[in-house]
Amino acid sequence: MGKYLFKRLLQLIPVLLGITFLSFAMMRLAGGDAVTYMYENAGAAVSQEIIDETKAEYGLDQPFLVQYMKWLGGMLTGDMGESYVSHRDVFDIFISKLPATLLLTVSSILLTVLIALPLGILSAVRQNKWIDYLIRFFSFIGNSMPNFFAALVLMYFLSVRWNLLPVVTTDDMAKSLILPTLTLAVSMVSKYTRQIRATVLEELDKDYVTGARARGVRGSVIIWKSVMKSSMLTIITLLALSIGNLLGGTAIVENIFMWDGVGKMAVDAINMRDYPVIQAYVEWMAIIYVLVNLVTDMIYHYLDPRVRLRGESA
């Protein structure tokens, strides 16, 4: 197991190298740089000499490969550089934004599971009954709605109309958390309900269920004990993917609700062409990706004897 883990973590290296190089190259190709944008946004005329001087200070006037190697060198010695815009240490910036994103990830995943699991099972058990159609209808709606739209609708009703919740993040974290969580949950619940329904239906068709039914085991026991256990694999895979996505920050939702997380940091950095911060974000995404894959595989190993046996024999 330790060897396997090590091997998997080794795979992180080429992915990280590839992805940082790619993003470095792409942002340079994209043109524009932090210095020019900073002066341009503020809207006043600044002479070209000043712009050139500041660029040289950041090393933006050097050839692309030199810039990349410098950055990589810094990385290897644990120095992620400092932001061109705010002059703060990139690692500090990143760490300061992480808790908000983690909190939102946890809360929206919890809410999703709490709603989607019962609804999905209910929908499967009552297949083709009105409740099933109702649940499927709403899950279709939730699935076909862009999340900024959901955000605005929720904001309009819950805050503006009924005045229950603050619009953007305030000191009262518990209340501020509700709107972004709900927004994210809308599309996730829709997706999960459908998936859980399909998985449960598939399991219900299997022989062991028929067998258990024939032996007189109660319906709810079958569902919770047997079906849920075997449906877990699918659900966990899905969850892992969603957690990966959410940890990358949800740019649009974070922006609308002024939730000061990683996604908003990324959008701001991209808008300002703040390369060191963008690089940190890209790296974070790569790490999440590899780790999520690793964790799912390990859960598979643990949960599914078939995979475990095959893995060991191979």
């Binding site: 605005l152 904001m155 309009y156 805050s159 503006v160 005045n163 603050p166 619009v167 953007v168 305030t170 609308i256 609700f257 002024m258």
Partner: peptide, 11 residues
């Protein structure tokens, strides 16, 4: 739009 909504709610 958040700005407008926040003014409406009195935040």
């Amino acid at each position: 739009s958040s700005l407008a909504a926040a003014l409406q709610t009195g935040d």
